[in-house]
Simulated scan of single mutants.
Amino acid sequence: MKDAWQLRRGEEVIGRLVLETVDMFWYDCRFEASTGWTTLRPHMEALRAAAERSDMDAIHKVDEAISALSLELAPEDGGEPIRDFLVRIKGDSARFRY
């Protein structure tokens, strides 16, 4: 079984990340959206737009807004949740680092 995490905001499940590969410090995953995805989707769209413009200030502001959501990655194997991380989601792909 591959490593997997639930991306959560409190009890709300935003989605599930299933590990595909590790690239240096980033964990590349398959993303399966859940009902809470609508909470995070606008932030990911803003992040992608800022990255396309190479606007580092905007990227940092969106990352701060995402951090303010108090998200966590809860390992499905019952391990300790990750609370300090960066996440990027596009379609059915996600990557995170902590």
Rank of each mutant, 00 (worst) to 15 (best):
G36W: 06
A65Y: 08
E45K: 09
G91K: 03
E20P: 05
G10E: 06
T39E: 13
V18G: 04
E72K: 07
E52C: 06
R88F: 05
P42K: 06
L69K: 12
R88K: 13
A74W: 08
I82Y: 06
G78W: 02
D3L: 12
A50I: 00
I82T: 08
G78P: 01
R88E: 05
Y98M: 15
R9I: 05
R9P: 02
I59T: 07
E11S: 14
W37K: 03
A94E: 03
G91F: 02
P75T: 08
F25K: 15
D84M: 06
E11V: 12
G91S: 04
K2F: 10
R9H: 14
E72P: 02
R30A: 15
E12V: 13
K2H: 06
R48E: 06
T21C: 07
H43K: 10
T35S: 14
D23C: 09
Y98T: 13
W37V: 00
T38G: 09
G10Y: 05
H60E: 12
R53A: 08
V22L: 11
D28H: 15
E64N: 14
V13F: 02
F96L: 03
Y27Q: 12
L71Y: 06
I89S: 01
L69R: 04
R41I: 07
R48N: 09
L69S: 10
E64C: 11
E11H: 12
A68S: 13
R88A: 10
A4E: 06
M1G: 13
E45T: 04
L47T: 04
V18A: 13
V22S: 11
M44E: 04
Y27D: 07
I66M: 07
D55L: 02
H43Y: 13
G79D: 02
F31H: 04
